[in-house]
Design a protein around this nucleic acid. Sequence first.
RNA 1: GUCCCCAUCGUCCAGAGGCCCAGGACGUGGCCCUUUCAAGGCCAAAACACGGGUUCGAAUCCCGUUGGGGACGCCA
Length: 506
Amino acid sequence: MRVRFAPSPTGQLHVGNARTALFNWLLARGGSGGVFILRIEDTDAERSTRESEAAMAEDLRWLGLDWDEGPDIGGPHGPYRQSERLHLYQSYAQELLSAGNAYYCFCSPGQLEADRQAALSEGRPVKYAGTCRQLSAVQVAGRLTAGEHAAIRFRVPERDAVVFTDLVRGEVRFAIDVIGDPVVLRADGTPAYNFAVVVDDALMEVTHAIRGEDHLSNTPRQILLYDALGFTPPQFAHLALVMGPDHSPLSKRHGATSVAEFRTRGYLPEAMVNYLALIGWSPRGDAADSSSGDDSELVPIDQLARRFSLDRVGHSPGVFDEEKLAWVNRHYLKTADPARIAELSVPFFVEAGIPMAPDDVGIRFLTAAMAMVTSSVDRLSQVPARLAFLFDYDAERTLTDEQLRREMSSEGARAVAVALAEELAGAPRLDRERFRAVASQVKARTGQKARALFHPIRLALTGRPEGPELDLAVPALDLGADLPTHAGIPPIAGSRERAAAFAAAL
RNA sequence: GUCCCCAUCGUCCAGAGGCCCAGGACGUGGCCCUUUCAAGGCCAAAACACGGGUUCGAAUCCCGUUGGGGACGCCA
């Protein structure tokens, strides 16, 4: 099986396209000997950029979708950029021409547009009127030598219909008379999309063309082209599109739409992949796994590759649901290696204004601290706020808060803060056990318990009314307080210093 | 306008004629756990678009309507 992902490098990798890429990749990796090809469709020189191509490649790699043949690594059927294959398209266009399956078209863009509008307003099917179809060889030669620019159009053959079997939709039929003669080569010698795909898919020996549903109505045109060129068409599979919450195509006004944006929002690639697979496909109900009773929707990529199949892909458009993505992300955040999460969260700290350039010692500290946040956070971008209490502590500032000041104004709360400071004065750094011991000392001395005990302690030591469990937060503070400066982490005040400062500020 | 595709809870899916007065997941609501916010556990509400057929029997098959999406480019 040879499949391909063929983006046009005109911007960011859209999540809808990422899903198409994923489905192709899963199929290639699921069986044995599958080949996944990356082809760049850059025939639109105006809009295509190398920057975009590089960005898309990076996004694919980030997702974990590697390719076996592509512009950067080559392969037996290269080149893999359409802009570098122009000679191929030209020679196949000549072949069509000499076989009488194509003809020169001198119609001006203005003329074509006028025809279109006329057809539209008269309620006729919109397709090429066939103006240049019957031009004689002499006429053509004359106009060509006169220097007129001409495109080359494919001559759609006389037939009833084009019928093909779509792997996800079943039999699809198009009457021939709705298909106008498509341009094969533009006047500037570059190929039109429908022609380039056919030549490329044939030459690259693509066996399955798996793409978005927006290409469904292009398919009959392409099949006709395969026939005229003497190629065997691949199998086709058209995937329903990904929509926004209002069922219109997912676009910027719905929020993030590109893989890169989701990455900068702090989603993990494995979450993105798992979630994308869940739009239009489900791990439930396939025979292999219903027996094992495993119907969890949390399926890592290698399992996806094993279980994915086209015949279980849905037919209707799916709404992209960021809430569910977040849920999937939470799962992977919790199960991922904390060291990796620590590593990945560094740029998010910087982004949040907490300078962070950790060395090995710093990373070890962050890694230890990760344990108390990954279970309560949706995305990496929320990690800094959750850990800000470590690096950003100011007793005075905390007590400026109206609400918190009031909470600390009670007899009991003050007593707790004072007792805490006294217990901690001169005390060694706290680990979990020592913190518990201190807490019960304070409890014994003040008679406060539960919330009345721990809330003032939290305020005093973290400066915030909420946050991770104190059992974890306090030892982290004191671990951080002794960090060497080379660790690359902002200075952290220890519990002893905080308790003293807080009591003083009361 | 013409052609093509699609149609189960708010959302993503399961359901391939009786197992379905429809099942799971996300989200939502409630309860529990709890030193806070989360997380976690449990429970609940929530759908077969509509109308005709076919059949002993339809969410499942057929037709139509409606609704949504796509295409109709010398964009891809």
